[in-house]
Amino acid sequence: MCPGSVEPQAAAAGGKSVCVMDAAGPLGHALVDRLLRRGYTVHAATYGRGEEEEEEDEAAAASALLKHLSCGGDAYGHRLKVFRADPFDYHAIADAVRGCAGVFCMFNTPDDQAQCDEVTVETEVRAAHNVLEACAQTDTMERVVFTSSVTAVVWKPPPPPPPQPQGEVADERSWSDLAFCRKFKLWHALAKTLSEKTAWALAMDRGVDMVAINAGLPTGPGLTAAHPYLKGAPDMYDAGVLVTVDLDFLADAHVAAYESPTAYGRYLCFDNAVCRPEDAVKLAHMLSPAAPRSTPPSDELKVIPQRIQNKKLNKLMMEFESGVYGELD
């Protein structure tokens, strides 16, 4: 059964309130939709992007969010509460999470590499700090699901050339190298790595139950080659760690991470590894429909061994769909 289905909603929600922050992006929309369908009351908190948006009243903002629901917006409206927050405003964030049993914490980085810089890094780290601190001060809080990225896992100095070992396969224990990210101005990777490390430090210090979802490149409408995740994409391809994830699967994984009693630590979340020339061509066409559909000559792209794994997430999803925890190999 799909985690986003309506049937198990009463047992899943139990009258609880959860917060989605920042709810303004595609993943936020998908999560709000699933959580409302599962019976939760949803605090949809959005970070202001400008004076005009800040002046928009909550009713109009709620109406805009309801338009993104797959069905039943009118029926769910009474369980949707919209909040305005700011990464630097702890009190506004605390207002949004007050009374919630769970928080889905994400930060929507700019869609264009040119707009993702050191300021983005600072803002995202501050947001992570304030959200986790607010969660630690919320008596009703049961679990935080923190949205990170595979870019917080895969970037590090290259291994020695053959015949030396080619480096270990990336998994939940792997972290991107901060100095390497700074050196090559991999701002998306640096922001996700620093913000996730900040969140983990606070969660462990304050005793907050937190699970992190390290997502591959989310695919969906509006994705272009300018996305900051894709800076250095040829190097990720050569290293066998260029991965993507369908937005619906990513949203389902977040729900599973929140509701599964055995969920813990970090989960690498992707459903496609780009390791063959035809995979690269398909991704290139997705990013730019005008791109050639033919496979490049064999001397330009080669089949790359996949050097990243998500077995831990696959086990979580199997347990969540079956309702049997801790017994699946």
Rank of each mutant, 00 (worst) to 15 (best):
299 D>V: 12
75 A>H: 12
280 A>H: 11
147 T>M: 04
4 G>H: 03
323 G>D: 13
245 V>Y: 00
306 Q>I: 15
153 V>L: 08
191 A>D: 11
249 F>D: 06
68 H>T: 03
151 T>G: 10
119 V>W: 10
142 E>F: 02
95 D>K: 12
166 Q>F: 08
249 F>Q: 07
208 V>P: 02
70 S>Y: 14
228 P>T: 07
89 D>F: 04
64 A>P: 01
265 G>P: 03
322 S>W: 03
54 E>R: 13
302 K>Q: 15
20 V>K: 03
18 V>P: 10
147 T>A: 05
156 K>R: 14
93 I>T: 06
83 F>Y: 15
300 E>G: 06
113 Q>L: 11
78 H>Y: 07
280 A>F: 10
205 D>K: 13
282 K>I: 05
319 E>R: 02
298 S>Q: 12
70 S>H: 15
120 T>F: 04
174 S>T: 11
218 P>H: 00
35 L>C: 12
136 A>R: 03
295 T>K: 07
148 S>W: 01
184 F>Y: 15
66 L>F: 10
318 M>S: 15
311 K>L: 14
180 F>D: 11
286 M>K: 13
271 D>T: 11
98 R>A: 11
272 N>P: 03
48 G>C: 13
26 P>K: 12
193 T>L: 08
1 M>E: 11
79 R>Q: 04
70 S>T: 15
237 Y>K: 07
41 T>P: 00
76 Y>F: 15
284 A>G: 14
137 Q>F: 07
123 T>R: 12
56 E>N: 07
144 V>F: 00
121 V>S: 02
240 G>A: 12
111 D>I: 09
213 I>E: 04
187 W>A: 05
106 M>I: 09
327 E>I: 13
134 A>C: 04
141 M>Q: 02
19 C>L: 09
131 V>M: 03
244 T>W: 01
220 G>E: 08
172 E>Q: 08
23 A>F: 00
284 A>C: 14
189 A>C: 07
306 Q>L: 09
99 G>N: 00
162 P>R: 10
265 G>L: 08
82 V>C: 11
153 V>I: 13
306 Q>C: 13
174 S>A: 14
315 K>H: 13
297 P>T: 08
182 R>M: 09
216 G>M: 02
244 T>S: 04
118 E>T: 09
259 E>K: 01
128 A>R: 02
